[in-house]
Design a binder for these strands. Structure first.
Lengths: 215, 215, 215, 215
DNA sequence: AATGAATGAGTTTTCATTCAT
DNA sequence: TATGAATGAAAACTCATTCAT
């Protein structure tokens, strides 16, 4: 019933090396995982601290030894989800030379992540506006950071004449929007998605859209 | 704080003509508007029925004369928001001949809507997964419908050889994702956004991305 | 659906003579009848003023023209039920000479009443302790009056040597208890009860129990 | 105000022997007792969960740890009252040989119970028709069971020629009615009632009423 | 006189959090 | 350190009553 696996993505074996000792997870991350699962299933308000505790295999009081409140637990869970995602994404983005290839890789990773860690993806890309201003600020600044990084890349490429003079900021935002548009489909799709193909199509459209074309 | 204006969009004067008599609003839509405002500000769970009532200028019990429960009120508010949006969007989509121009118009309308009716936009494009299965189904099928309509258009154009052989479904999804990526920026931007420019940029990228190019 | 008839009991034709003009019932008794029906069906607290109004065919506000509150309506309904019952019972009790026959008649009337006017019977013989102290006092004093009247009769008979030297008060109470024991069975029995037989049996037992027997 | 004693009846010392250690009552029965008291005083609808909690010396939430709802608490209270009564009554009924003596004992026990456990008696013998169908069914079947048991006894005696050929069912019902007629008087009487005398009188009347007499 | 739309006081119930063990 | 029994603040909802029409 639990089997919350979190094994490395098929495309990220190098990232998790050295973590497979399956050492006795400490209570804190046990609770964090349970929280991810329960929050993602029920949403913040419908989630019950008792269920999170039970699901983590600890007593209700124990949760409060590690987290000062429900909101604190939620925030830390989001944070950890954000870190978890960033870690995987950043790593790859620093690698390859060619922009197209790098973005293709970004998309693949992104799609893999969403598909593999549905729970976390749902929490990271969800709309938590009503729960906590702070969380919303995090998520916004998280996305802005992502967009800024992408915008910087587009700008650099543009100055090298590799892409058309599009607005780098807007282009970044559009890419992030495209990426986000896959969250729900990937979470709710039962059949195994063809992630490679999806990534290629998106990249094709985007690159034709922003490449230089001789008139 | 009230001033829930709902005057025609600057770009939709033709749509609302004849409706500006500002006739005595009936209680039901008064409450619906208050609900939109309060729900959009606090989210479903943090919203208090009492505040909605106060905000609509009626007593707590009156709300229950028109809506059987908090959930019912929420659902009807979403529904009305959906209709409100569809009304404005569908109208334009059936008009112009040229796809590019039609989509440009779609984007402009979409952006105007979001910017003008922040409350409604936030509710329609928000993530209500944890509140009510039914609402989620509505929103998903609403988006799917939108995507299907766009996909059909792309497919038709494709058969006329007007655009590249991209996956119409995926392209539609990407366009919807692009559109959605503007929700938060437009809602939270204080400065007047240059909607025309934004729409043009998006359309440029998308059309270069999907047009036929001689190799 | 209404057809709350209140026609004379088969055994009381003489009582209602002159009332069969079926004259346009005035609003007040219309409401009183509706209240009897609704209160008896749902009990005081579950009964809704709105339903009583609807059932009486008047508006909600109208009820308050005739009765100052729900409690007032309830009290007046009980009172009217009490009077209705007393009227029928007292009349008969003053008639016949022979005690045995008089009591037999009392029982028959009582049983007929319960069976015919289930609604009223249920309200009169129910336990309204929790609703209103005043109502309870009425019901208790109503029963005490009944018992006192019977006790007086028993005492008189006793002094004439017609019955054993039993405690008249206790005997009266026992008789009333016997009578009450038929309320639920008569209300809930679907089949037509053999009221004569029931009365005879009860009277037989009681009279053997209290008659003088030569040892 | 607390002093909910529940010491053994003066006439039932043998039943409760070994139970008078007044051991630390557990919360559940503490609440059940408080409920009995409050429900019996105010009736189901007028009773406030908060008062029951306070009266039991626990917090409001604690009541819901043991009972899922007000109705559940009410039902369990009735059930426990029914069991409590049955326990005491059944025990004695199985003992003595002579019918007259057995019934005399039954009455004494019944009267003692009512007088001693007014709260419980009021709940058990009250009319809860409007509160909950299930409770009504319990009470009816409880009374029917009682009547059936008595009817069986009367029938047996009859076949042994010990009593007149009365309708055993009706006789049982009458006896139960007689018994019930003492509920209110015993509950509301301030002075110490002479239970022995009352029982003897009732038994005398009933037995003369149903015995065989040579004409 | 008759109405019914509007009202808000009052109640059950939930569940995050505490704290004695 | 870990626990879960106990708690009480807070919110949805009901319905008797009012009063403008």
């Amino acid at each position: 019933m639990k089997e919350r696996a979190y094994r490395p993505l098929p495309c990220e074996e190098e990232v998790d090396k050295g973590k497979d000792k399956t050492k006795e997870r400490d209570k804190r991350s046990l609770i964090l995982d349970a929280a991810t699962q329960v929050f993602s299933q029920y949403g913040y308000h419908e989630a019950r601290m008792e269920e999170i505790a039970t699901c983590a295999g600890v007593g209700k009081g124990t949760v409060y030894e590690y987290f000062s409140s429900k909101l604190d637990l939620f925030q830390q869970m989001i944070r950890s989800g954000l870190d978890f995602y960033s870690q995987r994404i950043k790593y790859t983005m620093g690698q390859k030379d060619d922009l197209r290839e790098r973005l293709r890789h970004l998309l693949i990773l992104h799609f893999c992540f969403i598909h593999k860690y549905r729970d976390r993806a749902r929490m990271i890309f969800g709309d938590h506006a009503s729960i906590n201003e702070e969380v919303v600020r995090w998520l916004i600044s998280f996305r802005e950071e992502k967009e800024a990084r992408l915008a910087a890349i587009f700008e650099a490429e543009q100055q090298q004449g590799k892409i058309r003079p599009v607005d780098p900021q807007l282009t970044a935002q559009i890419l992030v929007g495209m990426m986000a548009s896959f969250v729900y489909p990937l979470i709710y799709t039962e059949t195994e998605p063809d992630i490679e193909r999806m990534a290629n199509e998106v990249i094709d459209i985007l690159f034709l859209g922003i490449s230089c074309h001789r008139e």
